[in-house]
Amino acid sequence: MSRLDPSRASPSGDAPFRDVATAHAPFRSGRLILWAVILLVAANFAWIVAHNENFGWPVVIAYFFDPTVISGLYVSLGLTVVAMALGTILGLVLAIARMSNDRLANSLAALFIWFFRGTPLLVQLIFWYNLSTLFPRLSIAIPFGPVLASWDTNSVITPMTAAIVGLALNEAAYMAEIIRGGLLSVDRGQTETAEAFGMTRARALWRIIIPQAMRSIVPPTGNQLISMIKATSLVSVIAMADLLYSVQSIYNRTFEIIPMLLVAVIWYLLITSILNIGQSYIEAYYGRSERRSKADGKPALTATAVQEASH
């Protein structure tokens, strides 16, 4: 009973109560053993893979910087950058249209998102590539009126343009929803404040809403970018010489299927690793106002500016 006496909880009390500042973490031997076992298993697995001749590591090394592979890598990276950039810009436009009160803009954006999210990317790519069978000629014309300009579809739709259009439009549908979610996550009071200060809608969006929405837009966009890198491998079906297509073209000749696929896998992993690092920097940038550091960013500058102002 006496152990429950609250008066004993004072620092000057008996031995059972001591200042937590003197505490230390106990040594956990079970945890150490678990670590050792896992590391041992992992090292063993790595050793087995490295010494398994079926993986053909010498072939992997020999072809890793092969010109065909490297040019395929450039195609994959280029497609990713261009399709992602176009997809993000179009996605932003769609997100804004989707959120507007304008019935027409709203329904057109909804229709676009519904279609491009609802059909497989592979099928979309094949359709774009074979557009000439549906529309032999592409024209700019006044509806039901005269034709202003016209091109042969096959001269416009190359594997490259089909790949860019296919990937970008599909990406736009997903980015639209990601960006819309980000814009919705910003406190309604921010829009209202921007309005009360007489900002135009475009300026409020650009200066106030989007920078705050970025915190919730960046992580899923990083996800999309990584998906996009891998999605570019689909363009091999329309004879676009991307990374996967390049290694395929080599193993069709040498029959070194697994080693060549390993070359592609390692390249994909390398790229996504670099993107992950980039993403964490971008997230840190948009989260800078969240840090609760007491040290002000530029105390010296502020002090001189105050002096200047008081002159």
Partner: peptide, 21 residues
């Protein structure tokens, strides 16, 4: 927006722009 530019407003929830100093 142009008309609002000569009217200042202070809100219950402050509504400072959190991403700006």
């Amino acid at each position: 927006a142009r008309q609002r530019r000569k009217i200042g407003m202070v809100f219950q929830q402050f509504n400072l722009y959190p991403h700006m100093t």
